[in-house]
Computed example of a mutant assay.
Amino acid sequence: MNADHPRDRPKGWLPRHHRQAPRPWRKLRLGFLRWRRTVLANAHTARIYRSVVGGLGTLIVLIGLSLVPLPGPGWLIVIIGLFVISSEFQWAQRLLHFVRVNVERWTQWVMAQRLWVRWTIAAVTAAFVALIVWCALKLIGLPDWVPDLAIFELLTLR
């Protein structure tokens, strides 16, 4: 017998979603889905809509790819761009699934390794990010608001 059977619940018990007010984003999402269905019903507007979604998603992916070598959320922005594109294109859904599966495999593989292997991977990643930051600062120079410290002379950044 299920422990959550209604007879076993305290008097006046309601599930969480009954105790709360309707979620505000639900109306917005349903409105968007109705609008999207209307847009996709016409072949001409469907092409325009798909072009805009594809262009916006591609722009987000390109911005993310340009940020990948820098410290920060470069790959996350790429994946967000793929989410945008995958809302309209089947090939992007397959690519997103491929990325998701391989990131999960990579994470499981890394977590199954010994501690020294994980630390080595982390150190190599940190060294790569430090090298990219150094190269970027070497090319564009240090901003004026950065104080004069001896470390910048040792790194040949001043």
Rank of each mutant, 00 (worst) to 15 (best):
A3N: 08
H17F: 00
H18L: 13
R19K: 13
R19Y: 07
Q20H: 04
P22F: 03
P22R: 15
P24Q: 06
W25S: 07
W25I: 08
L30F: 11
R34T: 12
R34S: 12
W35G: 11
T38Y: 06
N42Y: 06
H44M: 02
R47C: 01
R50A: 10
R50V: 08
S51T: 01
V52I: 09
L62K: 02
L67A: 10
P69S: 02
L70Q: 10
G72W: 09
P73S: 11
G74Q: 08
G74C: 03
I80A: 14
G81S: 11
V84L: 02
S86Q: 07
F89Y: 11
F89R: 12
R94Y: 10
L95H: 04
H97M: 12
F98Y: 02
N102D: 15
N102A: 09
W106E: 13
W106K: 06
M111F: 11
L115G: 15
W116T: 07
V117T: 15
A123K: 00
V124G: 12
V124K: 03
V129Q: 08
A136N: 04
L137D: 11
L137K: 05
K138D: 00
L139F: 01
G141W: 03
W145K: 01
V146Q: 04
L149Y: 09
I151D: 02
L154N: 02
L154P: 06
L155P: 13
T156C: 07
L157Q: 04
L157N: 00
R158H: 07
R158E: 05
